[in-house]
Design a protein around this nucleic acid. Structure first.
Lengths: 355, 355
DNA sequence: GAGTCTCACTGAACCAGTTCAGTAGTCCAG
DNA sequence: CTGGACTACTGAACTGGTTCAGTGAGACTC
């Protein structure tokens, strides 16, 4: 059993692949150890021998077996990432793909690979995956995305012993590096923009509060609005567009509707746009709209959305860099993610005259 | 050098992790081989011994080392996937995330993991990644996504010898299993829907023709329209919303504008909606709109988009199943993907009276 | 009661690398 | 011309599993 389809057995004479160091040693008439030293740039090999070895290796298409290397070096060159977002979120959000693009750029530059697992909305499955991956020596470390309120993963990865970085925090009393975003500053730039346009009553429709960043943003918006003397209404929604639209409708139908709404994501803002359009509320004349994420969607809709733009691929790249440094040189501590910048487009405008 | 941060050295007395089979054997006073047989359900072990072994393994948190296993079994339990989509596409499309969710469901059920690489729009890098992964024995097989016109990857994976499945095809003269989508049938159901509503001149704005499925769809739309006696205009666009919007504008401004447009994706359809709204063209009174993909976006915008719905997670699950079967039992051949179904919403309506 | 069979287990080889201790051979100093 | 240092290697052990060829003990057969 376990016959491999399309896979040739070991030994020469077949497709030609699957060359081992012993093959090289035999053909060159030297020992395996010499080949190893030559290929790894270790001293103790004559320049001419090294040259012969590397040439033959290239010629035969030799690649080091990752398993064998991992076995003796106790290093895999693989980084793990588990997505335990609810399915609805996965299908809607492009955050993850942009994060991934940046993450991968750094990983491939530094010779690492990414092991990915998508579990539904089952955090306990996420923890078990870390434990299994680390137990099976499949990974060198993990990246923790989507920090939750009182996130159990932090204690778990410390118990398991797997090196990790947290995209979130800061967390007190942990040795895990945290990539910390200043939600207060981002909130301020959005609220300030609306205040400058003359808005006196704004609303913030956030995503679910189980996510730590949503809490941070809600607090940031409240504080910034209070500091500027604005009235502020904060509501929580799922990440789904239709629900954000429904809440938008309720806000607009209330006796004292806000004149501007900040949405937790671009898709939520789209839902708001649809609700406004159904009520013949004009953007931005009657209502200003800001989206907390700047994706390509913001420029596809009409009017283009004012948004808080952050460098999500850069965030991914930073996460990869910090994790690899943590694994290899023990880098620790708190790293601040660059703040978002407000990109003003046509969905925000002067507050309507009070009526 | 190469000191591990947060990683404890081998041997007992530390964090407790990293138990090996030899540890189990020593503590139980039996041989490594007996432990192996016991844990793998092989015959030749007394039931009581097996029980003692499995209990101790669970107690000490033993996990098999994937490297050691891969080394002797020549199997890794890992499947590779490379995304060489252009960055613009990655950030916009949710196809991939939905595909991934289905893929992962099957992989995790069957004990496999996914190794992921995101390269930009560099197909040669994709091929080198396959070659390296296979050479390094990191993977058991790969999934080829986004079939291109005259795709060089098919010959490449056959040369390299890595088991693969192609999401596309059918391809003549290859042993690689193909997951084939009947683009002609999908095209027919979209065109038929418009014909039944009385449209006589329709347009199709497709994505780039380097993608094989875009060619298939274009041909399918043309044939279906011709068969039904409709006039059809086909235009090619990038996947970016604004460009699709621009093309929409040109079509609407032409002397004989179509009364319905089929878009290659939901984001492209959104671009079209924005262009129509700027020209005060009403949807669906003046123009009917169909999107080729049914994502959550189609129900967020106003009006909700009529779309060709296909089970993308199911597609991913099928790809995983076929690849694992190909690797383990040598399954081959052509597998047809279930066809899309047309989900009629409010963006399509009766053709306007000829003016 | 000798021969055979099965059961439960052991020892060793093997996968493909890394690494350490040792060893010829050369060179140079004293 | 001997001792020590250095170079360029070799052989073997080691990583943690799997697997094959034994092996001793007990049960069963005739």
């Amino acid at each position: 059993m376990d016959v491999q389809a399309g896979r040739t057995g070991p030994g020469p004479g077949n497709g030609g692949q699957r060359v081992t160091m012993s093959d090289l040693a035999r053909r060159l008439g030297i020992s395996k150890a010499a080949v190893s030293y030559a290929l790894n740039g270790q001293p103790g090999v004559a320049a001419e021998t090294r040259e012969r070895v590397t040439r033959l290796a290239a010629e035969l298409g030799w690649h080091p077996s990752s398993s064998a290397r991992a076995l003796s070096a106790n290093q895999t060159g693989v980084v793990g990432l588990v997505l335990s977002r609810p399915a609805e979120l996965l299908t809607v959000e492009t955050f993850f793909m942009r994060f991934l693009a940046g993450l991968e750029r750094v990983l491939s530059e530094r010779g690492s690979s990414l092991l990915l697992r998508v579990v539904g909305d089952r955090p306990e499955e996420e923890l078990r995956t870390y434990e299994r991956w680390w137990g099976e020596r499949r990974i060198d470390g993990v990246i923790l995305l989507d920090e939750r309120y009182h996130d159990p993963r932090i204690a778990a990865v410390e118990r398991i012993g797997v090196p990790a970085v947290l995209c979130g925090g800061p967390i007190k009393g942990t040795s895990i590096p945290c990539l910390w975003t200043d939600q207060a500053a981002d909130s301020r730039s959005a609220v300030m923009h609306l205040a400058e346009l003359g808005h006196r009553h704004i609303a913030h429709i956030s995503g679910p509060l189980e996510f730590a960043h949503e809490r941070g943003r809600r607090r940031g918006v409240r504080r910034a609005a209070t500091a500027l003397g604005l009235e502020v209404t904060t509501v929580t929604s799922s990440y789904m567009g239709p629900q954000a639209g429904e809440i938008t409708g309720e806000l607009l139908d209330s006796p004292q509707p806000p004149t501007a709404i900040i949405y937790g994501s671009d898709v939520m803002a789209l839902g708001g746009l649809a609700a406004a359009s159904q009520r013949r509320v004009r953007i931005p004349r009657d209502l200003s709209v800001i989206s907390w994420d700047d994706t390509n969607l913001t420029t596809v809709v009409h009017p283009p959305l004012t948004a808080l733009e952050r460098d999500t691929p850069g965030f991914g790249a930073l996460a990869a860099t910090v994790l690899l440094d943590h694994i290899h040189v023990g880098r620790d501590g708190l790293i601040q993610v660059p703040p978002s910048t407000l990109r003003a487009r046509e969905s925000t405008g002067p507050a309507p005259a009070a009526g």
